[in-house]
Structures are given as C-alpha cells and as structure tokens.
C-alpha cells in the first residue's frame, strides 16, 4: 500500500524532473546551436533567425548577400589598431592566420630561403601590414587548420585570418568579415582523360572526395538527397585537408574532387594531368575574417581592399593564379563592394 503510494508520488516527481531536464536540454541546444554550425556552413540555406541584440546584424542574412554585410571603409585608428601599433620590438607585427598547404594561396616554398610563405593570400596580408604598421614584412604568420579559423580569431590568437575563407551567414554570427576580395564557387576536379564533365549526371557511380566538414561535402550530400545529383555518387571518402583529395585522386582511389574552384585550381597547378571540369556550381566570396567587435580594423581592411582592387590585385592574380584560372580574371574578380547601409 505505502510502497504503491510512494511510487505514485515518485511518478509525479518523475514527470516534473523530466520536464526540467527537457527544459534544460532545450536551453542548452539553443545556446549551443551556433557552435555546432561553425564548420558546416551551407550556402544558400536561409539562416535561422536568432533575435538577440548581439546578433542583430546577422538578422535577415542570406548567404547570397552575406558579403555585403560589412562596414564602410575608413582610415581612422580605433582601439584594435592602436593595440596592434602598441606592440614593441620583435612583437610589433600583425598576427595573421594563414594556410601553409594551399599552393599559390598560402604555402611554404621549400626552395626559397627559409621556406618562405607565398601566395595570393600572403600578398594581401603583406599589403594590410604595410598599411597598418608601415612595413610590409611586419607580419607574423600563424598556420591554422581549417577548423581552427574561427576559434583562433575569437581567442585572440590572431588579429585576422586570410585563408581562403568563405563569407557565410553562420560565420558572420561569430566573426566579422571584410568586403570580398575574391569570387569563387564549388567546382569539380578530375583527370583530363576522365569522362566526368562537371557537376552533373556524369558523376553517377563515381567516387568523389571532399574535405571533412567542408562546405563542399554539405552541398553534395544535400544535392544527392534532393536528387540533383545521381544517388549512386559515392561520397564516402572524406579527408582532413582538401589537398589530401589530390593524393587520393592521383592514386586512383577516387574519381573526382569537389572543393572551392580556387583551391581546385591550386590542386590542378600541381598536376598537369588533372583539370577543372564544368563551371562553378555555387558562388562564394573570400573575405578577411576579424574579431566581431573590431570595427576599426574591419573598416581599415576594407579601405585597403579598395586600394588593392585598383592597384595590386591584378598583379597578384597574374603572379599566382592566371596559370590555372585563366588570363581573364573576370570570373574571379569580386563585385564592386557594398556595405551595410548607414555604417
């Protein structure tokens, strides 16, 4: 009798406890949601709206116009720039997160003195350092892996990231971006002799390699589920770094690679027997990522980019990218910058 009553009352408390746990879980889920979406940003998907003050700028964001959500250029020094300038001695450097493995973008050339970092991104970083610190070599490069780009900025390990980083709404919620400095899109890379013609039915039954957690994988997976890509396309090969896909392709373990056209071109530059197949099937923009509240730095970088577009961009393109992306830079040139209204 007593036991049954106790059980009944326990059951009552159990219900309350379950509700409490569910509430806590829901709260945790809502709070953690932005974290889980750091890496797998999917372009073209409407961003979930989060109506908090801090994220007001990300409201109404769509990836198609995410690159327009940046501050208007200005040359005034603010707290962020002053802090960088206040560094003394050997530390008086702009700390820039870069890639060391993307040929022609940011890579160590082992055949230069001290295995120098070279590439399109590296040129831009030098240009920004020249503007802020007056010395184009006042840059401290930090190699950061793809999935560390945002944490490195948030933790203050780097002042900015110039590392083939696509501007997306998800990322805009965690960091600030400059205006775009390059236009690209997902593209298919395959051997010249391959029957694959592009992002279409010719991928049926083929093995496609992507980087783990990349935009490319998310897009392919979604398109395959939606039937825009043949269901027999094998996406099971994912690797830590997009460059590892070229290894798998050369060893014949996969038939094609999907990654940003710019990076696919950097792979093609290392192997004359592979080429880009078909047109880019998405449109993406690379931007310089900075800390979310570093408004003065964002404005300053945007001013540098305006100058750079007129003087420097073309030379850097010719130096590093024209060999694989074509003499005509029209497809890669970013659009005329647009900024947040009233900024």
């Amino acid at each position: 009798m007593d036991a049954r009553r106790a059980r009944a009352s326990l059951r009552g408390w159990g219900g309350v406890a379950t509700m409490a746990v569910l509430c806590a879980l829901a709260l945790a889920f809502v709070l953690l949601l932005p974290c889980t979406q750091r890496v797998t940003a999917e372009p073209g998907r409407a961003a979930p709206r989060v109506a908090t003050g801090a994220q007001a700028r990300a409201d109404d964001c769509t990836d198609a116009e995410a690159h327009e959500r940046t501050l208007a250029p200005a040359g005034a020094d603010g707290p962020t720039i002053e802090a960088i300038r206040a560094r003394t001695g050997a530390k008086r450097k702009l700390v820039v997160g870069v890639d060391q493995n993307s040929y022609r973008w940011g890579y160590r050339n082992p055949n230069t003195e001290g295995a120098r970092l070279e590439g399109f991104d590296i040129d831009l970083a030098h240009r920004i350092a020249e503007d802020i610190l007056g010395d184009r070599n006042a840059v401290q490069f930090k190699a950061i892996p793809t999935n560390q780009r945002i944490p490195a900025i948030q933790d203050g390990r780097v002042d900015m990231v110039v590392r083939t980083m696509t501007i997306t709404c998800d990322r805009l919620r965690q960091v600030a971006f400059s205006a775009p400095y390059f236009r690209t899109g997902q593209q298919v890379l395959a051997p010249k002799s391959s029957a694959i013609t592009g992002y279409d039915g010719s991928l049926a039954g083929r093995k496609v390699c992507t980087a783990t957690g990349s935009t490319a994988y998310a897009k392919l997976d979604a398109d395959r589920k939606a039937g825009r890509l043949p269901g027999s396309t094998d996406l099971s090969t994912t690797v830590p770094n997009q460059l590892d896909c070229l290894v798998r392709l050369q060893l014949g373990e996969v038939d094609a690679v999907v990654t940003d056209g710019a990076l696919a071109a950097s792979q093609a530059a290392q192997d004359p027997t592979v080429e880009l197949k078909g047109e880019a099937f998405t449109t993406e923009y690379y931007g310089v990522a900075m800390k979310k509240d570093a408004d003065d730095l964002v404005r300053r970088v945007n001013r540098v980019l305006v100058d750079y577009a007129a003087n420097g961009w073309q030379k850097s393109y010719d130096d590093w990218l024209s060999a694989t992306l074509g003499k005509d830079p029209a497809a890669s040139k970013p659009p005329a910058p647009r900024y947040l209204s009233g900024s």
Partner: peptide
C-alpha cells in the same frame, strides 16, 4: 618517393603524400 619528388618541385601536395 612521390612525397620527395613533389617536395623538390615545391608542391605542397608532397606534404600530403608524406602524411598519407
């Protein structure tokens, strides 16, 4: 051997081969 060859040519894919 592939890693070495690519590295000598200055291609970062050499490093990817070595990691593989």
């Amino acid at each position: 051997e592939r890693a070495r060859t690519y590295n000598r040519q200055g291609y970062p894919v050499g490093g990817a081969y070595l990691r593989y």
